[in-house]
Design a protein around this nucleic acid. Structure first.
Ligand SMILES: [Mn+2]
Ligand SMILES: [Mn+2]
Ligand SMILES: [Zn+2]
Ligand SMILES: [Zn+2]
Lengths: 149, 149
DNA sequence: GAATAAATGAGATTCATTCTCAACAAGGAC
DNA sequence: GTCCTTGTTGAGAATGAATCTCATTTATTC
């Protein structure tokens, strides 16, 4: 398999910090990019086990902040008292609509909103690094379901 | 002291659920509205102790979801692995700029953004109940500080 | 091939939050 | 009033995601 671009990015990021792209880190990285949805630490750990990667949960927890700092993943939301992430390299930023009843999450574009946030950041001389916009309520499905009762 | 409007609101909310505005709940409510900044459960508990209200921490944790559901407070952010709230009754919604270095939080208006969110919610038939928009990065202060080193 | 610094797994620990449970109050029916 | 149901509370136990400790291993530098 050819070297992925995300691997180069992570490897360079690590090198800049005097760290190395070890096998466990590479396996975690690959697992993260094998997933195409939101995940928490435990789910990522499960994926690693399925892929026969011998990585401990401690190392998963240790690697997540590195992936965050490298910009390859983002912290997306907190659900059921777990931190939820997703990879963002190669994906446009988006916002999350979270149904409080069924827990479903859907995504929409940030295009309309970004310019305002960027302008506001500039006005305050705030160096924006990351952000999250999560909207809670009832999805159309649950809304209808509630109505029919 | 005259009865506060928030008390009426909370009382009615509770009644609708078959619950009562007991003394501990009233004391928690008053403590929440005596604060004019973000707070977490422990900080609220401290305020209650200072005000000589004999309320247990368990009751604080039990009352926060009720206050949330009543719409009197909102969950503002998560900081240092604590859930942070603030009362919103009588305050305009706003977004948070959180400095990752000094931990400071500043607020700006949501006016520019709200219409887009509301339109987007309508388009998806999503019933929006709550949301949070938190922006992480470096405040101007920390940005300058880092530059001068 | 020493010396140094980073990395790891296993298991212990932390600590915000939730749960359990026994005791207590409020309110309605009679 | 008493009985009964339901809600409320404090104290302390339990939970569990996330972090930390430490002994051991691995890579890098000189
Ligand atoms: Mn997403
Ligand atoms: Mn605020
Ligand atoms: Zn739903
Ligand atoms: Zn700062």
């Amino acid at each position: 398999m050819q070297e992925q671009e995300y691997e180069q990015i992570f490897s360079r990021f690590l090198a800049k910090k005097g760290l190395r792209l070890t096998l466990p880190r590479k396996q975690i990285l690959d697992a993260v990019f094998s997933l195409h949805s939101h995940f928490d630490a435990e789910q990522l750990f499960d994926v690693l086990r399925i892929r026969n990667a011998e990585v401990s949960l401690a190392t998963v927890y240790r690697t997540l902040p590195l992936l965050l700092e490298s910009g390859l993943i983002q912290h997306s939301m907190r659900q059921e008292s777990r931190d939820v992430y997703e990879h963002i390299f190669g994906h446009p930023r988006h916002l999350h609509w979270i149904c409080r009843q069924c827990g479903s999450v859907s995504e929409t574009s940030l295009d309309d909103i970004m310019p305002y946030l960027e302008r506001s950041a500039r006005e305050q001389h705030f160096e924006l690094e990351d952000f999250s916009l999560n909207l809670m309520g009832l999805c159309w499905r649950c809304k209808n379901e509630n109505r029919n009762q």
